[in-house]
Design a protein around this nucleic acid. Structure first.
Lengths: 339, 339
DNA sequence: ATTATTTACTTTATCGTTAACGTAAATAAT
DNA sequence: ATTATTTACGTTAACGATAAAGTAAATAAT
């Protein structure tokens, strides 16, 4: 079957290839009757332009890459939904790359996508990303980059995040209001800016409420396969918390399991709040109080920023940070109980 | 900043562009010393080939598209993980397109990606996809297509699915073994082949156990916003089931909520099994008995089939179906209770 | 010693599209 | 009536890579 190219259309209509190209772009240089003939034949033969030829010529691919740690995570899935909603409207395409929290893999990917292929990049770094050269390099090649959620603070690149500090502060105050005396916080991503912010928010809330900060109540589970044990151990200890903030959704499972297995009752013995977007939070037993992050909106905002920066004017995107607030959704896991 | 192309390398080394190209491909036509010089300079200048130029010439893009209804669904997220694991190994790239269960959107997307851009397609159709012309058309353009999970039975295209019939049969027998007398089944995707298979499996199990099939126990919730009401209503009725099979994960939430709100106890009053890959199944209360689909393996198998069909030999992929079995994971929601 | 083959390249053409520039005919301006 | 401008196209070249075909020099075969 013959490949339908612009040349085929041209020879059939006794026009030049350029004229076809211009006609299909609705250029003012082409007369209306000619445009109609061209469009009619293009439709009849089901012509679609060859992406590669076009991109080679125009140096635009209408394709962006999304690089992120994980997709089987409701937060990131929702972010992608947000990105897709914008990208679709703008007629762009999305390449997805998963790092699986592997820093080396992240560097590989960025190397991979450098030449051609993408017009811009949305990225959420791995928990181990320590340098930013691989990202800065893309910028040097004039590929705009936007960070979302997991950012590198120092890099002069637009960022879209939630109000990590404030929402953690708010969560801590909520636990205090529920009568908690010893509040702990737990993370698995010690080095991420968002973890630091959330822990700072927690500490600030304690400080503002004149409560001494006990470093022992900040639990960093950095080794994946020991997370459960560390939590279980903590909840068994004499110095166990009576309120716990989980900085990531992934901690919900081990926390609930550790309580189940150690006989601790939620919320009677331990009140729990988790940063989470998981819809099953409402049918857990007890239902889980969450800080629900605006994942969809983060995706949208990041995608808009990126696509705007690809526009014709190319005004150097100002180095800025977009903050979209999270929402505290109070459920049973922090219910008041009389003891 | 000058763009590093093959020509730049060529002029710097006093070689022709073709020689550079061949050297970088480790062609036998180029001498070892020359290859080394070329590789050294390429590395020094951080050369990466222009994807579009290459794809235009070779008619290969090393890119596949994945078209699927939804990403914020643990099953599909795991499928993507599986796909990514294979694609990554093979050096391919993945474009993601979401249909959001919109059939028109699905057609648009396929039109969209027709020319150039992708070498092959992995697709799981929307709940409303009734014709297959848009898919057959891609095949005509020599773009191989593989179905996964949600297939069109009639289309002569390789398919990767789980054992829908058998696992549903097995689930039904499990409920019978737990003493259920009136087993219901519930779906939101009446027209999908997988729904039909699962319902057939359920019916066959009843038949084989000499139980009359009551069509009233097959609940099709086709309108999204009425799902909860229909389930609630069903569970309130005189003819309510004492065992329920949920054909998709999305039904877990409304079923648990309806039980909560109507005072039905799981598993005492109603035993529940759901097709689900959601990790929170184990911390629901009661924990949920699931048929866990091999999502990751489905993704891998589909991706392998596709990429193999892109290979040089291009032996017409046999019209076949790959079936990867699901696993019944028994938890508390189907525990035996004495009544 | 002559021819055949191999080695290591180069030249040319092309993938499909579009940017840049060119031009004949028609229309408008003076 | 002459020049200027506009309209509606066409020609050429190029994006960067590679397939196809060509070639000089070196080596092997007879």
């Amino acid at each position: 079957m013959e490949n339908i190219t612009i040349k085929v259309l041209a020879s059939r209509l006794n026009l030049s290839a350029t004229t076809i190209s211009k006609a299909l772009k609705d250029s003012y240089e082409i007369s209306e009757p000619t445009k109609q003939r061209v469009r009619a034949l293009a439709a009849e033969l089901n012509y679609t332009p060859n992406t590669y030829a076009r991109s080679l010529r125009t140096r635009k691919s209408e394709t962006i890459a999304v690089v992120l740690p994980e997709i089987a995570d409701h937060f990131f899935a929702l972010v992608i939904n947000g990105i897709e909603s914008v990208v679709r409207e703008m007629g762009y395409h999305v390449l997805i790359y998963l790092t699986h929290e592997d820093y080396e893999r992240e560097k590989e990917i960025l190397q991979y996508i450098k030449n051609g292929r993408i017009d811009g990049l949305l990225i959420s770094i791995t928990k181990n990303t320590i340098t930013s050269d691989h990202i800065a390099q893309l910028e040097q090649e004039n590929i705009p980059v936007i960070f979302f959620d997991r950012i590198i603070e120092q890099l002069q690149v637009p960022k879209v995040v939630t109000n990590d500090f404030e929402s953690s502060y708010q969560a801590t105050e909520h636990l205090l209001n529920c009568g908690c005396k010893k509040i702990g916080v737990c993370t698995i991503f010690a080095d991420l800016e968002l973890s630091k912010q959330r822990i700072m928010g927690y500490k600030q809330a304690l400080k503002d409420n004149h409560i001494t900060i006990d470093v022992d109540q900040v639990l960093c589970c950095t080794e994946d396969d020991k997370t459960y044990d560390q939590i279980y151990h903590k909840l068994q200890s004499v110095n166990r918390p009576d309120g716990l903030i989980a900085i990531v959704d992934k901690l919900t499972l081990p926390i609930y399991q550790a309580c189940e297995n150690s006989g601790l009752r939620i919320p009677e013995d331990l009140k729990v709040i988790s940063f989470s977007n998981n819809p099953s939070a409402s049918i857990l037993n007890p239902s889980l109080t969450t800080i629900s992050q605006p994942a969809f909106l983060i995706g949208q905002a990041a995608a808009r920023l990126l696509i705007n920066s690809l526009g014709p004017k190319y005004e150097q995107v100002q180095q800025d940070i977009t903050i979209i607030p999270s929402e505290l959704i109070i459920r049973t896991s922090t219910s008041l109980t009389n003891r």
